[in-house]
Each structure stands twice: as structure tokens, then as C-alpha cells.
Nucleic acid binder design. Structure first.
Length: 489
RNA sequence: GGCGGCAUCGCCAAGUGGUAAGGCAACGGUCUGCAAAACCGUUAUUCUCCGGUUCAAAUCCGGAUGCCGCCUCCA
């Protein structure tokens, strides 16, 4: 009801292929087909995966809010070198590795309230599709077999390098690729690997083996979305070689355009350093969620444009945490004004204007940072109206609050409630410092008693004692409440 | 070595030709026994530096400096 006019506005997206923002025009009116590269399931997900997940979840949610019928595919790579290595390390079957980390993936992504895709296929369920693509490439002369490995010939496909914007010559000049004598061109990549002893393998017309990495996304995206389809996304690092290769394979095999819009998200750094396993500074989603509400991470990521790198730091997370609390608090205040009354929302021009700007920002290549600033402004307006205590404004407040919920919801925020937000933080914090809730409750009770007797010295002692443990007391009209005070930087 | 990106208040961050959004922090106020929380208000004549184009530039062009990414598995 609120946004029936917004879908008319044109969405612009930055297309990695052209290097510019383009007006988004789906192949079929009213429908969008998108594919985002999922994860290789050999370990728990870290906050970099969370960023990708949240970015494409935002795209997905936004497209749906514009009334597109979206078919969204996100894959699992459940057969690959790392998984095989992991299965040897953990001494469990490789299938078990996949199952284990897919489960872990869902735990994390569900906790982060990332909407599940329409289809979430596993590579191993689509081996036949991959064999089909490889076969076609062999038949069309785009691939060749050496010692059981099937390679894609990059020289046979004229568009190679267009996505990552470099030419074959430039890449050769880079010369960091080990020259493999078996390959016709050092840049040729493997479509199908002859499997070694003890490794999983599948029988194919071109010998037994297992798929290379890139072929699975080509096969699965084509299977579920056809060719071409509208949007293909993933982390920036996937542009080369993964997406370049996917594109080459698919276009060579089908003779059709593979994808119309390529969208890539920037990376997460930690304290200005690249997050990587070798540096040992990866932060697992599970670790993060022990301390903060999932929406804190979402809000934090949405504060920066999806294409820019984002630097994770305790300070930035604390900032996001404060803002999130405030938004929830505002909504609670607004709800409070409606308690026990029947109020019909009254349309409000100021609110409508902010909503319009919100959608305008989102339409401009998903500018969530700008869009959020309008949410904050809306929250500020709401507080002003509430402070005015003008009974005739109740309808306007209700309307603004509905809008706040709508817009936040479009970004995947304010899906929880204040009590839950604070409750889970309290539990986590108490666990971390090893205190029982009764300790806090007793201390508060003692302080209430002291205050009643105007023994403010004792009262302040107790307050300070708790504060040192990261527990801040709030004397409200309803009584003494407490919340977690994170580091005071 | 090749290719690409970025540089905006103490911190985070939007803004791609029309005269600097927003958040955090800080400060002032309301509230409070005092606080905290919450709310309100204030806070960049200026966008790394140098030169150029233009009536007009953070925004375009050239150069310098610094930081980062990709070129190898990676979201």
C-alpha cells in the first residue's frame, strides 16, 4: 500500500561488465532471475561470507519490494579440493564434510535473517548437467583432453578477459601463472579433473573424474535460470578467474549471452588488514553472534556501499550497535503512544517525502548508506512528534512508525524487538564474564532498597561495581533496568 | 611486473559539474538524588597535494604522494 508508485522509478545497477551504472531492465518484464555464488562447504562461514550473503539478500529483498517476481539461485560447492583435504584431516567421508558445513551455513545465515534463495542446489546433485556442458564444449572444439583432464581453451573464445578487463596478452605478461606443459595456453583452465586414487569420481564419456570449480556454476545457473539470465553476483575476488571462466564456458557452449548484469561486493578487512586464513584473522559468524545481535552486523554492512571495502573494527560495531538500539527504542516509544487506543494511520507528507528519498537512494545502485540516513531522519521526526505529546498527531505517529517498519524491513532490519535485542545481549554478556543473573538481580534489589532509604552512597557503590562488570543501570519510571555496556572507546 | 580501485570533520560514511547528507564521539540543554538511557540542539567556507578545463569542481582532465584489491584457493 505504501509503495505502489515506487516501482515505476528506474533501478540502476553498477555492472562490472561495463564498469558503469546501467538502468536495470530485466529480460522479462516483472521477472528477475539472479544467481549468487554461494560457499564451498569445508569450514564455518566468516563475516566475509556474511557480507556477501547480506548484500545479495538486500538486492533480493529490494527487488521483491519493487514487486518483481524473483527467482534466486544460490549454490553450494560440495565437491572440491579443499573438501577432500578436509575429509582427510577430519577423517570423515567427504560427503560428511559437505553435510556438516551446509548445516553450519544454514545456522549462520538463518540467524542473520538472510532469506533463503528460491533454489539452493548442491554441485554434486548436478554432475550430469556439468558433464553435459563439458561434452558440448568438447564437441564444439572449445575444450581438449590431456591425460584425462579436460581443459577449456581460452583462445577459442574471443570474449575472454572482457569481464575482468584484461587481455590474454596482459595476463600472460603477468606471468604469475605456473606454466603447465600439458596446457595449450597457460591460462586454459580445467573443466574436468581426472581423479586420483581414493578421490570421489564420476563416470563420463571422457573418462572418470570430478568437476572443476567453474563448471558447476555454469551448469547450475543454466539449469535453473536458462540463458541468458539477469543478475549474477558474488564477491569481488570471484571476478577473476571464476566468473570470467564461467562466462567463457557458458557462452562458448550455448552461443548465447550468459548474464546481463554482473554485481560484485567488496571485501571485509579487519582492523585495516585483509581477512584471510593465512593471517589468521578470520572472524567466524558464530563468534560474532556470541557477542552481538545479528542485525548489528547487517546494519554495519549496510552503512557502507556494497562495492566498497569495509573495515571491521570494534568501534564500528559499537557504533552500529548504538544506532540499532536507538531505532528499536524509537519504535517502542511510538508503539507506546498507541497503547490501548484505536488509531488509524494518517498520511503525512514529510514521511512520504522521506520514503520517496529512501527508494530513490536504493534505486541508485542500492545506496543503503544514503537510504539509512533517511530512516534515521524518520526516526528523529518520530521522536519529535512523540515529544510534542499532541494527541492529534497520534495518526501521524502511527503512519511514520509504519513507514519506519516498512523501510527498515526492506533492509532486513527491525525484525526483532527491543526486549529480545537486549535480552540476548545480557545472556551472552553474563556467560562471558561468568556471572549468574541472580547476582545482578540481588545487587539491583539492594540498591533499590538503599535508594528508598536515600542511602545514595551505597546506591552509587553498587552501580559502579556493576558498571565495572560492563553492566549499566538505568533508573526508569518503570523501575531499575540494566543493559550491557560494551567497551567505552 | 601487468590491470583496477580508493583518498571527504577525532572516527565511520554519502555525495560524479551548481556551491559539503547521515551516524558515532564530543559539547550544551531537558530528564534525574546524582547518573545512565532517551530526546532536543551545536560541531567541515571545505573535500591528500600541485596544476588545468569551466560562469561554476569534492565531483572532469594531467601530474605527485599515500593506501588497497586482483593477476594463485578465496565472499
Amino acid at each position: 500500500m505504501v509503495n505502489n508508485t515506487v516501482s515505476v522509478m528506474a533501478l540502476k545497477v553498477y555492472n562490472t561488465m561495463s564498469g558503469t551504472k546501467e538502468t536495470f531492465t530485466p529480460l522479462q518484464e516483472g521477472q528477475v532471475k539472479m544467481y549468487a555464488c554461494g560457499v564451498t562447504v569445508y569450514d564455518h562461514c566468516h563475516i566475509g561470507h556474511a557480507r556477501s550473503g547480506i548484500v545479495f539478500d538486500t538486492v533480493y529483498r529490494y527487488l521483491m519490494s519493487k514487486d518483481y517476481d524473483v527467482t534466486y539461485v544460490k549454490n553450494f560447492t560440495d565437491i572440491d579440493d579443499k573438501i577432500i583435504r578436509r575429509s582427510q584431516q577430519e577423517k570423515i567421508p567427504w560427503q560428511e564434510v559437505g553435510r556438516k558445513y551446509i548445516e553450519s551455513f544454514y545456522e549462520d545465515m538463518d540467524a542473520l535473517n538472510i532469506t533463503r534463495a528460491t533454489y539452493e542446489p548442491k554441485a554434486t546433485d548436478h554432475i550430469d548437467d556439468m558433464i553435459g556442458v563439458v561434452n558440448t564444449l568438447l564437441e564444439k572444439g572449445h575444450a581438449y583432453i590431456v591425460e584425462g583432464d579436460v581443459y577449456f581453451s581460452v583462445e577459442s573464445y574471443k570474449g575472454y578477459g572482457q569481464l575482468s578487463k584484461r587481455t590474454l596478452e596482459e595476463m600472460m605478461a603477468g606471468a604469475r601463472i605456473d606454466v603447465d606443459e600439458k596446457k595449450k595456453n597457460p591460462l586454459d583452465f580445467v573443466l574436468w579433473k581426472a581423479s586420483k586414487e581414493g578421490e570421489p569420481s564420476w563416470e563420463t564419456p571422457f573418462g572418470s573424474g570430478r568437476p572443476g570449480w567453474h563448471i558447476e556454476c555454469s551448469a547450475m545457473s543454466t539449469r535453473y535460470l536458462g540463458n541468458p539470465f539477469d543478475i549474477h553476483g558474488g564477491g569481488k575476488d570471484l571476478v577473476f578467474p571464476h566468473h570470467e571462466n564461467e562466462r567463457a564456458q557458458t557462452e562458448a557452449a550455448t552461443g548465447k549471452i550468459f548474464v546481463n548484469y554482473w554485481i560484485h561486493n567488496g571485501f571485509v578487512n579487519i582492523d585495516r588488514e585483509k581477512m584471510s586464513k593465512s593471517i589468521g584473522n578470520t572472524l567466524a559468524i558464530k563468534t560474532f553472534l556470541k557477542e552481538y545481535h545479528p542485525e548489528v552486523l547487517r546494519l554495519f554492512f549496510l552503512t557502507t556501499h556494497y562495492r566498497s571495502p569495509v573495515d571491521y573494527s570494534e568501534k564500528s560495531i559499537e557504533d552500529a550497535d548504538s544506532v540499532l538500539h536507538r531505532l528499536y527504542y524509537t519504535r517502542d516509544r511510538a508503539l507506546e503512544t498507541q497503547k490501548g487506543k484505536v488509531i488509524s494511520p494518517a498520511r503525512h507528507a514529510d514521511t512520504d517525502e522521506l520514503e520517496r528519498k529512501f527508494y530513490e537512494a536504493m534505486d541508485d545502485d542500492f545506496n543503503t548508506a544514503l537510504a539509512l540516513s533517511y530512516v534515521y531522519e524518520l526516526s528523529k521526526n518520530l521522536n519529535k512528534m512523540i515529544d510534542d505529546k499532541d494527541a492529534s498527531a497520534l495518526g501521524l505517529i502511527a503512519y511514520a512508525n509504519d513507514t519506519l517498519n516498512n523501510l527498515s524491513g526492506t533492509l532486513g532490519l527491525l525484525k526483532d524487538n527491543l526486549a529480545s535485542l537486549e535480552g540476548r545481549e545480557r545472556i551472552h554478556h553474563l556467560n562471558r564474564i561468568g556471572l549468574d543473573i541472580s547476582f545482578v538481580e540481588n545487587a539491583i534489589a539492594e540498591r533499590v532498597e538503599a535508594r528508598k532509604n536515600k542511602n545514595y552512597q551505597r546506591s552509587d557503590e553498587i552501580r559502579n561495581m556493576l558498571l565495572e562488570k560492563g553492566i549499566a543501570l538505568l533508573d526508569t519510571p518503570k523501575g531499575t533496568e540494566w543493559r550491557i555496556k560494551h567497551s567505552t572507546t
